[in-house]
Design a protein around this nucleic acid. Structure first.
Length: 255
DNA sequence: ATGACCGGAATCTCCGGA
């Protein structure tokens, strides 16, 4: 099986990139984040014509997640269960397909909105930990993948790209990521590449791509049985070199 | 010391992104 995740930074700007990439890679599932449109604005037809079912959880202007699936599925959640927010943003999409619970994530960045904005990120992570705990307790095969907006260690961001109090590297954010690992989930990239410096995002500004001033913030966390079956982790860096790219590139796991 | 580069929405400039 092949599962990919890609923060696309507007599906309307980059549906052709996705179409061409799908033709080449043919994943079983593609998780998209930051689609930046409402459900009815998502160009579903072009992907349906390619044999994908399209599940969209969008909102106006910002955020928004979607899953493209080659297989039948059951929709589980469009809001992270127990996330007690009055007006939850479109940052979560959970389905079951081929016997696996597939959770597509777009965590809050946490740098805007002051302390309140940061606490919303921490609340999201804590609620995610509870969801993972629940699924693992029930012995469910599951995958949590997407844009976590967390650099787990200092190796996961290029020197001088972020300050030590940035929400992507703050210990509260990282501790949440570590707690997911301590529950028994496997960081798929580190299972394959324990020590290499690898990034999945390069800022549009400051020549970040040319200087390789990147971040590793797009992750895939696997439940134990899936982790045992893990065969590869691929970062499609070449997408960052294309015309009008997203600032994130696709990441792919095979198992 | 500061801005840079994007997309979206609502204007003739802003906010969020990471």
């Amino acid at each position: 099986m092949k599962l990919a995740s890609w923060n696309i930074n507007s599906i309307r700007q980059r549906h052709t990139h996705v179409q061409q990439w799908l033709t080449k890679e043919q994943p079983d599932w593609l998780f998209l984040q930051e689609i930046k449109c409402q459900n009815e604005q998502f160009p579903a037809e072009i992907f349906e014509e390619m044999g994908y079912q399209v599940i969209v959880n969008g909102q106006k202007a910002y955020n928004g997640v979607a899953i493209l699936s080659r297989h039948p599925y059951q929709l589980n959640h469009t809001v992270l269960p127990d996330l007690n927010e009055e007006d939850p943003q479109a940052r979560y999409l959970e389905i079951e397909s081929q016997g696996i619970i597939l959770c597509n994530l777009y965590l809050p960045n946490g740098n805007s909105g002051g302390e309140e904005g940061f606490q919303r990120k921490i609340h999201f992570i804590n609620t995610l930990i509870k969801r993972a705990e629940h699924l693992l307790k029930n012995k469910q095969d599951c995958i949590f993948a997407g844009d976590f907006n967390i650099c787990p260690t200092n190796q996961d961001y290029a020197p001088q790209t972020l300050s030590s109090d940035d929400a992507l590297v703050k210990s509260e954010s990282r501790n949440g990521f570590y707690q997911l690992l301590w529950l028994g989930l496997t960081d798929a990239l580190r299972a394959i590449y324990p020590t290499e410096t690898l990034y999945t995002f390069w800022d549009y500004t400051r020549g970040a791509w040319q200087r390789n001033a990147g971040l590793r913030i797009d992750h895939a966390l696997l439940s134990p049985k899936i982790a045992e079956r893990l065969q590869s982790f691929t970062i499609n860096k070449s997408e960052r070199d294309k015309e009008q790219p997203s600032d994130h590139v696709p990441v792919i796991i095979e198992f």
